[in-house]
């Protein structure tokens, strides 16, 4: 497993990082995703997508088990990313798996909404 060429985010209240494991990328988001980190999250997800396309990644795992909260602007960043994957030809698409925690109540509702938005690509593991 190696660090991906995806710049990590390290803020006092939010962090995001990615690691490559063969055809899989594992990302971890922690803290509080709000307006203060929106532009950084946009950049992180864009880099992640470009890396996934360039390296023919088949699956991206997004671990949000320690992501306390996400606002609608950052949720929109995920919508933008997922839409970019949907826009690829079928053989260029990759799966997105969210690792969620039942103790964080936003996850049941917001991740369910994302999975309904793209149920062919997005799944949730608790």
């Amino acid at each position: 497993m190696s660090q991906a060429s995806i710049p990590a985010i390290r803020e006092s209240d939010f962090s995001a990082s990615a690691r490559v494991d063969g055809a899989k990328v594992e990302t971890t988001l922690t803290g509080n995703a709000d307006l203060n980190v929106k532009s950084q999250l946009d950049g992180f997800l864009l880099s992640l997508h470009q890396h996934a396309l360039g390296d023919s990644v088949s699956e991206v795992v997004v671990d949000v088990r320690n992501l306390e909260f996400i606002n609608s602007s950052c949720l929109k960043a995920f919508v933008t990313w997922i839409s970019s994957v949907q826009a690829q030809p079928i053989n260029g698409q990759y799966r997105i798996v969210f690792l969620s925690s039942p103790r964080l109540h936003w996850q049941r509702r917001s991740l369910h909404a994302l999975s309904c938005f793209a149920n062919d690509l997005v799944s949730i593991q608790t």
């Binding site: 602007s73 949720l75 909404a113």
Partner: peptide, 19 residues
Amino acid sequence: YYFELMRRNPSDISVSGLG
């Protein structure tokens, strides 16, 4: 309606419009 807004201009990162 929430999903309708998600599908509307998904690539526009300047505004969420979802709140």
